[in-house]
């Protein structure tokens, strides 16, 4: 219960305790600036992390419910082979629909490599069959075996080899965003600890007087903790507002823009930055409390 009591006392404040630390001080301004800068960066790290999460989900979902079968056969046997594959697919649990691509669709797929005048009939191009798969999935190995037995020229691609590295990359990116937030919190704590130590050292005479008159450590520490915590909170609010504003000014998400234009927050995601200022205050509270009590313990 002690931490809750300490936070309660911090929020209530004490006009007497607030005044015992001299009002000016470079260290306190440094705390505000550091907190604002770190909050600004934290907003971007948060946006990156959330966008990566969305991306991983989108890629995973898009590739997970489709598969492709490539049928290679001499031109005269292609229709028969495709029909056999379609028959097998009809009997395969988990395959909700299957459709051979039309010539026009295949031509469009090859256009980027061979140009618009591709004579599809003259080339031994395999026929592609697009599968839609149920959420529960399907037995890819079983299907491969049956295809190998009935249509040796048919090859199943369930997209696993595409999907896994893409999703892993997006997941890593999301993790990287979270690690960035942790590093920012750690750097904030370190900076505020340094600033608090400097403030405590600069006010050693104040502390000596207070101890002389019988002030308890908790009273002395509270004066410093409250000042640094409130400054960190104010700085983080400014930094968060600036960071969120900058994110809002990014170009809107579009299919053409891909990942980068989707970096902003979406829906309730805009509420996430609200977490940053209280988090900065908690970090400042912990860092200053630790520094203050360590300094006071070193005094007689």
């Amino acid at each position: 219960m002690r931490p809750f009591r300490a936070v309660g006392e911090l929020l209530r404040g004490d006009s007497g305790a607030d005044r015992i630390v001299p009002p000016s001080g470079f260290t306190v301004r440094l705390t505000s600036f550091t907190s604002a800068a770190m909050a600004f960066l934290a907003v971007f790290a948060l946006a990156l992390s959330l966008a990566s999460g969305r991306l991983a989900h989108r890629w995973s979902a898009a590739l997970a419910d489709t598969a492709t079968i490539r049928v290679a056969a001499p031109a005269g046997q292609m229709k028969t082979q495709v029909a056999k594959v379609m028959e097998i697919l009809k009997q395969t649990p988990g395959v909700t629909s299957a459709r051979p691509l039309t010539d026009a669709e295949q031509k469009k797929l090859l256009e980027p490599w061979f140009g618009p005048d591709l004579p599809l009939d003259a080339l031994p191009v395999p026929r592609l069959i697009d599968l839609r798969v149920a959420d529960s999935g399907f037995d890819a190995d079983g299907l491969k075996n049956r295809l190998a037995g009935a249509v040796p020229g048919a090859v199943l691609d369930d997209h696993t080899r595409w999907r896994a590295p893409l999703v892993a990359a997006a997941d890593r990116l999301r993790l990287l965003g979270l690690v960035c937030i942790l590093l920012i919190a750690g750097a904030t704590a370190a900076m505020i600890t340094l600033a608090a130590n400097a403030a405590l050292a600069a006010n050693d005479q104040v502390i000596a007087v207070l101890r002389l008159i019988g002030a308890r450590d908790v009273y002395i520490a509270r004066a410093f903790i409250r000042r640094f915590t409130l400054r960190a909170l104010a700085g983080a609010l400014i930094g968060t507002l600036a960071g969120t504003g900058a994110i809002a000014l990014l170009p809107a998400a579009s299919a053409a823009g891909g990942f980068l234009t989707g970096l902003g927050f979406q829906g309730f995601g805009w509420l996430w930055p609200l977490v940053i200022p209280p988090l900065a205050a908690i970090v400042a509270f912990g860092a200053t409390r630790s520094a203050a009590f360590a300094t006071l313990r070193g005094l007689s």
Binding site: D14, I213, G214, R216
Partner: peptide, 11 residues
């Protein structure tokens, strides 16, 4: 306030 400090520091 300096003279009253022992009182304010002990609440």
């Amino acid at each position: 306030e300096n003279i009253a400090l022992p009182l304010t520091a002990t609440g």
